[in-house]
Nucleic acid binder design. Structure first.
Lengths: 74, 74
DNA sequence: GTGCATTTGTTCGTATGTATA
DNA sequence: TTATACATACGAACAAATGCA
């Protein structure tokens, strides 16, 4: 398929976070909510949150720092 | 069936790992590569890897420890 | 220096849905 | 219909890195 299925949970989470980063809801350098917070907010599992965040990292939107958190790049 | 079909993917993975254990590539007590590593190495799905490894466990070649890994017995 | 809490990393367990032969 | 195989998704446990009191 050419386009990712928008109903895939990790895609939903990823898109929501990417949109908020694009909107400037989080300034560059700020920390994203942690995995537990995202789990609560999106009502998904940790693995789903992790997949979404790792996709954002692969897209260059965030940087993940183990033990510290995930930070917005731009 | 008396003999497993060698073209079944899980049998291929199972046989490869069993051969490597028999060859001593992994000493007893060492940890096998995790499921994700085997997925990448054999280019199969997680369920296929899991089936292969569980067959090895049923044969007494490995011991599976959830949250830790899979370890060679002999 | 020690211990604890927080956060991300890793690994296996399980269930479900889809596609294929 | 059954068996294989893949992907998604949830959960649990263990582990490592970090920061702070």
């Amino acid at each position: 398929m050419a386009f990712p299925n928008p109903y895939l949970r990790y895609s939903v989470v990823e898109a929501a976070l990417a949109a908020e980063i694009g909107d400037g809801r989080w300034a560059p350098g700020t920390r994203l909510p942690g995995e537990n917070a995202l789990i609560g907010r999106f009502r998904v599992s940790r693995s789903t949150v992790r997949r979404a965040v790792q996709n954002l990292a692969a897209r260059g939107l965030v940087e993940i720092h183990p033990g510290k958190g995930t930070f917005v790049i731009r």
